[in-house]
Amino acid sequence: MTGRQFATAIARAAEAGAVLAALVGLWWSASHAGWISRVFLPTPEAAGASLVDGLAGGPLAGFTLATLGRMLAGWLLASLLGIALGLWIGSSATARTWLQPMLEFVRPLPASALVPPAIAVFGLSSGMVLSVVAFGAMWPVLLATVHGVAGVHARLNEVAAALQLSRITFVLRIALPHALPDILAGMRLAMTVSLIISVVGEMIASQSGLGQAILLAARSFRASELFAGVILLGAIGVVSNTGLALAERRLLRWQQHP
């Protein structure tokens, strides 16, 4: 990283910190001034105390680990299925012709619409939540992979034909590296989707996790615990997205021009 890039990164971090500080200041003012009842909007100090107590000696740490495990398992399964199917569909014009209408039909369906059929098959179990998470998070990876593989330049296909490369060799050595930027972008989006669906699934299926903790806190009017759970969800989203962004930058270093 050059000096200019480092200075730019510091400036952007400072700007983001200033926005965050302004939002927290507005929250502090609204709660302390009584603009909104503390039954619904706790003070930042109360939410922070609930967060610390819940992670230190309360059940919040266990709930967080349960949600993280469910999110990561669904994301990994979705990524594997999305990449495998995307490579197959993207590298075959026949498969794209036959399957594109079905993909366009299924893609807009919200993952929550599959909760009733999933409950009928798996019951109110962790497997039901995992299946819905994997289905909902698979589409960003699948569609990004199809787009990346189908966008391979025609001359590369001609080179592969001239070298008599098999379809598997072409996919692994040419199509997959070409589609890698799209795949990684789809995986970042899928991580966010998997977190959201994990929380919703925990609320619906009464599975241990942050979703259930937030729902129970809301029903009991424990606003500070509710906000502590929401803060944890935001932190998980930021950390996971930042980690994937760093991994993406490292994996795509070969594309960067000197």
Results as ranks from 00 to 15, higher is better:
Gly3Cys: 09
Arg4Asp: 12
Gln5Asp: 13
Ala7Thr: 11
Ala7Pro: 05
Thr8Pro: 00
Ala11Ile: 06
Ala16Val: 13
Ala18Pro: 05
Leu20Cys: 13
Leu23Ile: 15
Leu23Phe: 15
Val24Phe: 12
His32Ala: 12
His32Trp: 10
Trp35His: 11
Trp35Glu: 01
Ser37Cys: 02
Arg38Glu: 11
Pro44Lys: 10
Glu45Trp: 15
Ala49Leu: 15
Ser50Cys: 05
Ser50Asp: 08
Leu51Cys: 04
Asp53Ile: 09
Leu55Ala: 03
Ala56Pro: 01
Gly57Arg: 15
Gly58Ile: 06
Leu60Gly: 04
Leu60Glu: 02
Ala61Ile: 05
Thr64Met: 08
Thr64Trp: 11
Leu65Gly: 09
Gly74Glu: 06
Gly74Ala: 08
Leu77Thr: 11
Ala78Val: 05
Ala78Gly: 10
Ser79Val: 07
Leu81Lys: 02
Gly82Ile: 03
Leu85Glu: 03
Trp88Arg: 04
Ile89Glu: 03
Gly90Tyr: 08
Gly90Thr: 03
Gly90Trp: 04
Ser92His: 06
Thr94Gln: 11
Met102Phe: 15
Leu103Trp: 04
Leu103Gly: 05
Arg107Gly: 00
Pro108Cys: 01
Leu109Phe: 03
Pro110Thr: 00
Pro110Tyr: 01
Ser112Glu: 00
Ser112Tyr: 00
Ala113Pro: 02
Pro116Thr: 03
Pro117Arg: 02
Pro117Leu: 02
Ala120Leu: 15
Ala120Gln: 02
Val121Phe: 15
Phe122Ile: 02
Leu124Phe: 14
Leu124Gly: 01
Ser125His: 10
Ser126Arg: 11
Gly127Tyr: 05
Ser131Pro: 01
Val132Pro: 00
Ala134Asp: 01
Ala137Glu: 00
Met138Ser: 13
Pro140His: 06
Val141Asn: 07
Leu143Ile: 14
His147Trp: 06
His147Val: 09
Arg155His: 12
Glu158Cys: 07
Ala160Gln: 09
Ala161Val: 12
Ala162Thr: 13
Ser166Val: 08
Ile168Met: 11
Phe170Glu: 04
Leu172Ala: 15
Arg173Leu: 13
Ile174Ser: 04
Pro177Thr: 08
Pro177His: 08
Ala179Lys: 11
Leu180Lys: 10
Leu180His: 07
Asp182Cys: 12
Ile183Glu: 05
Ile183Thr: 05
Ala185Leu: 14
Ala185Asp: 13
Met187Gly: 10
Met187His: 07
Leu189Pro: 00
Met191Thr: 07
Val193Ala: 01
Val193Thr: 12
Ile197Asp: 00
Gly201Lys: 06
Ala205Met: 07
Ala205Thr: 06
Ser206Val: 14
Ser208Leu: 12
Gly209Arg: 08
Gly209Met: 08
Leu210Phe: 07
Ala213Glu: 10
Leu216Lys: 12
Arg219Ser: 12
Arg222Ala: 13
Ala223Gln: 06
Ser224Val: 02
Phe227His: 03
Ala228Tyr: 08
Gly229Tyr: 09
Val230Thr: 09
Val230Asn: 01
Val230Pro: 00
Leu232Asp: 04
Leu232His: 07
Leu233Lys: 01
Leu233Cys: 12
Gly237Glu: 06
Val238Asp: 05
Val238Leu: 15
Val239Gln: 04
Asn241Arg: 10
Thr242Val: 13
Gly243Pro: 07
Leu244Tyr: 06
Ala245Tyr: 08
Leu246Trp: 14
Leu246Ile: 13
Leu246Val: 15
Glu248Ala: 12
Leu251Glu: 02
Trp254Val: 07
Trp254Asp: 04
Trp254Ala: 02
Gln255Pro: 00
His257Gln: 15
Pro258Met: 10
